[in-house]
């Protein structure tokens, strides 16, 4: 590899110097970063770039798809039969629970109608496959095989059958990137199901641990308490399970307790997840019950007080 003849740059007419060109490209890069990170102007550019990158992702994902296909095709009958039986049993149980739930749901709807608050409604959902592609190992991001063409949008909630999985951070044309709730940069507003206490659960960078930094030592929490999404922030559907409190450490000298929770979604084992489209309950729809007496006030533009 060491032959001197290969540096044949002409002495005259080299164009701009190395440093000038490097500075120019660096300046463009910095401008791009600022536009992208601070102002989020570049969503369409991201989508454009994703088309170039998609073939690479597709090829990298291919071996896992092939093994899955082989596994599905040649799975032996006995296992399929037992799995079928187990699924039928699970479905029966689920249906049974659903019957009681339907009654509760109906009651809930009536109560909510009384209250004139709009319930969270899941309009539509879609199954997305997690592509077996490695992104940054220290961040908890995954690539899903659904993109803009399927109607995926930035900030969309991603669930699995056990709990909340994460949300969409980057939408490509045919694929999209999701951040898991366990990513150290992710935080999700939650409510403790038993006591109704609202707080925030942050990711820690480990898939079996969330951190709840804002609970005081006197807060009403117990190990095993269920954390559900509070719906504040409008990204996650309220009431969907998130995690279970796994460890509490109260020290009398500290204001805040050290609380850890274990996510319910199978963050490191999921193969398929669910994307949902839903109408979050809007804060504005809440109206004063006293105001309802006079229908005219609803049509009249209210003066800002």
């Amino acid at each position: 590899m060491t032959s001197f003849s290969s540096d044949i740059r002409p002495i005259i007419g080299r164009g701009p110097s190395l440093i000038a060109r490097a500075l120019f490209l660096a300046a463009i890069s910095i401008a791009l970063m600022v536009a992208d990170h601070r102002y989020q102007y570049l969503d369409s550019v991201h989508q454009g770039m994703s088309v170039f990158v998609y073939p690479v992702q597709w090829v990298a994902d291919l071996p896992s798809r092939i093994t899955h296909w082989i596994y599905d095709t040649f799975e032996d009958r006995e296992r399929l039969r037992t799995e079928n039986e187990a699924l039928t049993a699970a479905l029966r149980d689920a249906n049974l629970n659903l019957q009681t739930l339907a009654a509760l749901n109906e009651e809930n709807r009536r109560l909510r109608e009384l209250n004139e608050a709009v319930a969270n409604v899941t309009d539509k959902h879609m199954i997305a496959r997690i592509m077996r592609v490695d992104l940054d190992p220290l961040r908890h991001r995954v690539l899903l095989n659904r993109g803009q063409v399927d109607g995926v949008y930035k900030g969309q909630a991603v669930l699995d059958t056990h709990g909340i999985f994460g949300q969409i951070t980057q939408v490509g044309r045919y694929s999209s990137e999701a951040i898991m709730i366990s990513d150290p940069e992710h935080a999700i507003p939650v409510r403790i199901n038993r006591s109704g206490l609202r707080t925030i659960a942050e990711g820690t960078g480990s898939t079996d641990k969330l951190n709840l930094p804002f609970l005081t030592s006197e807060a009403d929490i117990k190990v095993g308490d269920l954390l559900i999404a509070s719906g504040l922030g409008g990204i996650f559907p309220a009431g969907y399970p998130v995690a279970e409190i796994s460890r509490i450490e109260r020290s009398p000298s500290e204001t805040f307790a050290m609380v850890e929770a274990k996510p319910l979604a199978l963050l490191d084992r999921d193969y398929e997840v669910m994307l949902i489209w839903y109408q979050p309950a809007e804060m504005e729809t809440f109206t004063d019950p006293n105001r309802k007496a006079s229908p005219a006030s609803a049509t009249k533009p209210r003066k800002p007080s």
Partner: peptide, 30 residues
């Protein structure tokens, strides 16, 4: 091959890296 794969090529590859694994465009490019 300094004439074929130079600065601009590195910059383009950096942009592709950003689209592939990065968070914001320009990070790896820079």
């Amino acid at each position: 091959a300094p004439l074929r794969a130079g600065l601009s090529y590195a910059w383009l590859c950096g942009l592709l890296m950003d689209a592939l694994v990065g968070d914001m465009l320009g990070e790896h490019a820079l």
